[in-house]
């Protein structure tokens, strides 16, 4: 059990490429923190810096009460689950789990006990004698988890552990990992590019972009009050609509914008906040034409184009409207649903 403190971490590669900059982050003991961002945003690098697989160019990393900058991965009391599982192909599942313990000089009966226990927890007890190649993707994933579990480390590190699984299995493992983490109460750092995975699993979400932290907060916090236009566009699917304030004003919505700061020149609207029914006075009202109707079962996505013919928007409805493509429609949204941003800095106002 341990807290992690990242104090101004930087990573510059030998070629001069800045992978990670200015990372200040405190992770509480037992917390499940998810690092999320597009590929190349430095999230894996940051995780590997915590693991000790990448050196830290600048800054101080504390796990528990030790500064671990100069420690080998094995000395940091962490366990890591790799994206491709990295199981030892020539060893049986049992030996895969036991290898780390043997290297630490854990006694044989204790190894046996811990491996059996982890195997039971992950329901891989029946495969202990098999080689990794005789297992399915989901089972391998469990073995990789097991290898982390048996170590009983202070911190779990997950590097996109579910990205090689099919969609159904991913949802199932997502729930299991989350439950397991709750039960063990081990501090966890989890990297993913899947914003849905990030939203559902995290106690706290860290959104990264270009090697910097864009926003830290609970998933709902980040979702309902994105700090930057980047976060607004990245978290949520379909992405938030971004409209220039001038366009809204020109279309008779000056009233709706009156409550926003004067320098809010970009306004965000979540697709699900927009509807076809009139809202209370003072809301946003936009005329648009329906380009494409996407029924997705429980919800329907409308791809529309505003009256200016250029600006595109997405609307999410919980029902299938009786509309045909090409129809003209009027969109409504309450004023409270508007997210004001400053276009130049990308920062949220208010």
């Amino acid at each position: 059990m341990a807290a992690i403190v990242m104090d101004n971490l930087h990573k510059v590669y030998a070629g001069g490429v800045r992978a990670v900059s200015d990372i200040m982050l405190d992770i509480a003991d037992g917390e499940f923190v998810v690092l999320v961002g597009p590929s190349g945003c430095g999230k894996s690098t940051l995780l590997r810096m915590v693991a000790g697989l990448e050196t830290i160019t600048e800054g101080r990393l504390t796990i528990g009460d030790r500064v671990v900058n100069a420690l080998e991965p094995a000395e940091r009391d962490i366990a890591m689950v790799f994206q491709n599982y990295a199981l030892y192909p020539h060893m049986s599942v049992f030996n895969n789990l036991a290898y780390g313990l043997r290297n630490r000089g854990v006694l044989k009966p204790e190894i046996e006990r811990r491996v059996r226990e982890a195997a039971a927890m992950l329901e891989i007890g029946a495969f202990l004698d098999r080689k990794p190649r005789q297992l399915s993707g989901g089972q391998r994933q469990r073995v990789a988890m097991g290898r982390a579990l048996v170590r009983e480390p202070a911190v779990f590190l997950f590097d996109e552990p579910l990205s090689n699984l099919d969609a159904k299995l991913r949802v199932q493992m997502r729930v299991e990992i989350k439950q397991l983490q709750r039960r063990l109460g081990t501090t966890s750092l989890y990297v993913t590019h899947d914003q849905l995975e990030a939203m559902t699993m995290a106690d706290r979400l860290v959104v990264l972009n270009g090697g910097r932290i864009e926003q830290v907060g609970t998933p709902m916090d980040v979702y309902s009050r994105p700090a930057t236009t980047f976060v607004a566009g990245f978290i949520g699917s379909p992405a938030m609509n971004m409209l220039p304030a001038s366009l809204l004003r020109a279309n008779g919505n000056a009233d709706a914008l009156s409550g926003l700061p004067g320098n809010a020149d970009l306004v965000g609207l979540r697709p699900e906040d927009i509807g076809l029914d009139a809202v209370a006075p003072g809301g946003v009202r936009l005329q648009a034409r329906l380009d494409l109707l996407e029924p997705a079962g429980a919800e329907t996505h409308l791809h529309v184009r505003l009256i200016d013919g250029k600006t595109r928007m997405t609307v999410r409805l919980s029902h299938v409207p009786g509309l045909t493509e090409g129809a003209d429609l009027v969109l409504h949204a309450p004023a409270a649903a508007l997210h004001p941003f400053e276009a130049e800095s990308g920062h949220r106002l208010l």
Binding site: A51, G52, L53, E72, P73, A74, I78, A79, M80, F82, Q83, N84, A86, L87, Y88, Y99, G100, N103, R104, R147
Partner: peptide
């Protein structure tokens, strides 16, 4: 040989 094997071994204390 995948690099992750070496990294996994490092984490495992080898």
């Amino acid at each position: 040989v995948p690099e992750e094997l070496m990294e996994a071994a490092r984490v495992d204390g080898a």
